[in-house]
């Protein structure tokens, strides 16, 4: 058991190392630099600016300097274009916002998607099935850059109590969380339906049914636990996707979250910021996978032996 854990942690560290290295060289291969601006910077000034961030050095020197700062000083570097801002500050400020929004919208997705999916499975091939799935699927059949502004105009402009955008009061969380939640509700509903149908056709459910147990009881007592596994397994990746992929929602609702940095850092050629974000994101993914694997090993005695 302990050997497996050590093995897994070792794999995680190697993964992160490869990730950091790849990112380091990829971002520097992009056309332009953090200093590419509409008004060209004079050569002598440019030289000085590069000296300050170390970007004047040859790539290997930059690379080892970065690794050293990362490992020895736990320093992710500076945001190049912003005067005196550290990469770690950006992550520390924006992650809690994205995390909060993610939790809320996953909650909404679960509350919409799971009942819709379960109901659709139980009433397979009926009008209920059709209506539940249709409702749940709006979130992926219309892009978020349509649903977001529609919600903002009709709910935000229409209701006095809701702001169209901003991030200052809890009321501001509703519209973005719904927009983001609807996307994932569609996934959850489809997965829950499929999973439930798989379970409902299993022999033990048939046996329970044959014994005359009431249908609701069968669904709740016996089918839900197994049938929701695919949907529940989706929550982890969906959550990771929300952290890095909520750029559109963040700009539509003016949210100081993390998704915008993943986009803006790339278009601004913010080398250190991209590297920091990727490392952070990679850490989340590797960590989540590690936990999932360990949980699986702990729960499954057969795997524990091997």
């Amino acid at each position: 058991m302990i050997r497996i854990i050590i093995n897994r942690i070792g794999q995680g560290i190697i993964t992160l190392f490869v990730l950091v290295t790849l990112t380091f060289f990829l971002v520097r291969a992009m056309p332009g630099s953090p200093y590419t601006e509409e008004k060209a910077i004079p050569a002598h000034t440019l030289q000085r600016m590069k000296e300050y961030t170390g970007l004047d050095q040859p790539l290997p020197v930059q690379y080892f300097r970065y690794l050293k700062n990362l490992i020895v000083h736990q320093d992710l570097g500076d945001v190049i274009k912003k005067d005196g801002v550290k990469v770690s500050e950006i992550i520390a400020e924006s992650f809690p916002v994205s995390f909060g929004l993610g939790v809320l919208s996953i909650g909404i997705a679960l509350m919409v998607g799971i009942p819709a999916g379960v109901l659709a499975a139980v009433r397979k091939n009926t009008a209920t099935d059709f209506i539940c799935l249709s409702a749940a699927m709006i979130g992926i059949c219309l892009p978020s850059f349509v649903i977001g502004p529609l919600l903002a105009v009709f709910a935000g402009l229409g209701l006095d109590s809701l702001n169209v955008a901003g991030w200052s009061s809890p009321g501001d969380w509703i519209l973005p969380a719904i927009t983001l939640g609807l996307i994932n509700a569609a996934y959850l509903a489809r997965l829950a339906r499929g999973g439930m149908l798989d379970v409902l056709s299993q022999d033990y459910i048939r046996t329970a049914r044959a014994k005359g147990a009431p249908p609701t009881r069968i669904v709740i007592r016996h089918a839900l636990r197994g049938g929701l596994i695919p949907a529940v397994a989706f929550i982890g990746p969906a959550f990771a996707g929300m952290i890095s992929g909520s750029f559109v929602i963040e700009t539509i609702f003016q949210i100081p979250g993390m998704g915008q940095h993943f986009v803006n850092a790339a278009t601004d050629r913010e080398f250190f910021l991209i590297q920091g974000l990727v490392l952070f994101y990679g850490f989340l993914i590797v960590g989540a996978n590690l936990l999932a694997d360990l949980a699986q090993i702990a729960l499954n005695p057969r795997l524990r032996k091997s």
Partner: peptide
């Protein structure tokens, strides 16, 4: 039962949030 609880919670939360925001009667 399960579904009903979820629906009730959903409605409650949706109803509560606008209340939290509606303390401001005048616009910003």
């Amino acid at each position: 039962m399960f579904c009903r609880v979820i629906v009730r919670d959903l409605l409650l939360i949706l109803a509560l949030f606008p209340l939290l925001g509606s303390c401001q009667k005048e616009s910003q």
